[in-house]
């Protein structure tokens, strides 16, 4: 067993472990933290796939920003909340069955696929390659993305704020 395969297996197991923990824990905050484990494991996988920049971004944005936002969300609402029941059992069974069906279908499809070559130059100045591409070939999507972020920013503020004003008017 090569070191790379070993690293892959460990990271993959960690990622799946995080997901399964998320499904089975009861405290909301614990679920969230278990997912951080998954995100970190995925970042490790990115490194293995010669995508260092994406890996860093993953750690920063997912493990950092998104998770923190979610934790804030929990704190602002009901931070002691627990998953009391399993919810609608019938629906869960149906969803589970659908997912199992989907899983095996896709698994069957994946096994049919075989890919040829491997890219070899991705790890060489990875960040620079991305930068060059972004500012040349993908410059318009990149700029659009900044607009999306701006809209999301403004929208989030307005959404979170408007009720305050209305409440103030009512008072």
């Amino acid at each position: 067993m090569s070191g790379e395969l070993f690293a892959f297996l460990v990271l993959a197991l960690l990622a799946i472990l995080g997901g399964i923990l998320m499904l089975n824990l009861t405290k909301v905050i614990h679920m969230l933290l278990s997912l951080v484990l998954t995100f970190l494991a995925i970042a490790g996988l990115y490194v293995m796939l010669s995508a260092e920049f994406v890996a860093i971004a993953q750690v920063l944005i997912y493990s950092g920003a998104v998770t923190i936002i979610m934790i804030f969300g929990i704190m602002l609402t009901r931070h002691n909340d627990e998953q009391k029941t399993r919810g609608n059992l019938t629906r869960n069974i149906i969803v589970g069955a659908g997912i199992v069906l989907f899983f095996f279908t896709m698994y069957f499809s994946i096994n049919q696929v075989s890919f040829g070559d491997q890219a070899t130059s991705l790890h060489v100045e990875n960040t620079k390659q991305i930068g060059v591409e972004l500012y040349s070939k993908y410059v318009i999507p990149f700029e659009l993305m900044s607009v999306v972020l701006l809209v999301a920013l403004v929208g989030a503020i307005i959404l979170a704020k408007r009720d305050d004003e209305e409440e103030a008017e009512h008072k």
């Binding site: 629906r91 149906i94 969803v95 069955a97 659908g98 997912i99 069906l101 989907f102 279908t105 896709m106």
Partner: peptide, 12 residues
């Protein structure tokens, strides 16, 4: 769930 199960069946 309904949409997904339908999709899963179609894909299958």
């Amino acid at each position: 769930a309904v949409a997904f199960v339908g999709l899963a069946i179609l894909v299958f």
